[in-house]
Design a protein around this nucleic acid. Structure first.
Lengths: 123, 123
DNA sequence: GTACAACCTCGACCTCACTTGAGGTCAAGG
DNA sequence: CCTTGACCTCAAGTGAGGTCGAGGTTGTAC
């Protein structure tokens, strides 16, 4: 009658710990389909959603943002994803700047970055 | 005699708040040159270091990592930067995966991402 | 000589994403 | 009957990176 999953099975299927799953339920990110004898029962489709959560998290989305994307019914998530993409690109640009800055410092002959008197200007 | 700066001047020059500068002093990330009447006095070169901190932070380094780079005397920071670059690249890859996943979902005709029965598989 | 801004310390508090611990329930197996 | 294991709740703790407020001092201006 039920192909619903216990929390432990979901944890095993997703690699997410049981306590994290309870936490996700608590913050209403991933809710179980129902309860049997007080115990959470999850639809197998939850596994897909949880995988989505982890993947989105890995790309820099907060749980709040992820919930907004999951629950969005107006197509706004396209915009959110675009924003995040822009943020990541900007972060990449920052890295490039930092690397160049460090390269400059390394050409200074300074033993220690903190002691370089030419931070962050050109050497 | 002293072209040393008060904490407020440093805050203004860097855009970092006074309380954050005190915090940086507390965690020994950016120390004042000395004290005059109990008040912190900063070398103008601190501004460069603080700018470096913010820039490194923006690219994803933690304050601990930044301190390690600043204080490094063995050339290990090159490696740290390379590691961070790799991490950023991997993050970018994750974003690409997420975007593709969301595009798949959007072609499903699902109103709400959370309700798509095909997460995270192909539509 | 007193007002005022800018500084000081110390400890508490905040957000995020969890983890941990104490104490309790429930069904199956020996 | 008793243990084991998987589950439950609720509260508190963690760590990063700060912020805030109370209460106190310092230095300059009028």
């Amino acid at each position: 009658m039920s192909d619903l999953l216990a929390i432990g099975a979901v944890a095993e299927a997703t690699g997410v710990s049981v306590s994290t799953l309870r936490y996700y339920d608590q913050i209403k990110l991933i809710a179980p389909t129902g309860r049997v004898g007080g115990k959470r029962r999850f639809d197998p489709a939850s596994i897909g959603r949880i995988n989505f959560v982890r993947r989105a998290q890995a790309t820099g989305f907060s749980l709040e943002e992820i919930r907004a994307i999951l629950d969005d019914s107006d197509g706004n998530w396209n915009e959110m994803v675009a924003d995040k993409l822009a943020a990541l690109r900007s972060q990449r640009g920052e890295l490039d700047v930092t690397i160049r800055m460090l390269e400059e410092v390394s050409h200074c002959g300074c033993q220690v970055v903190a002691e370089c008197p030419r931070l962050p200007g050109p050497c």
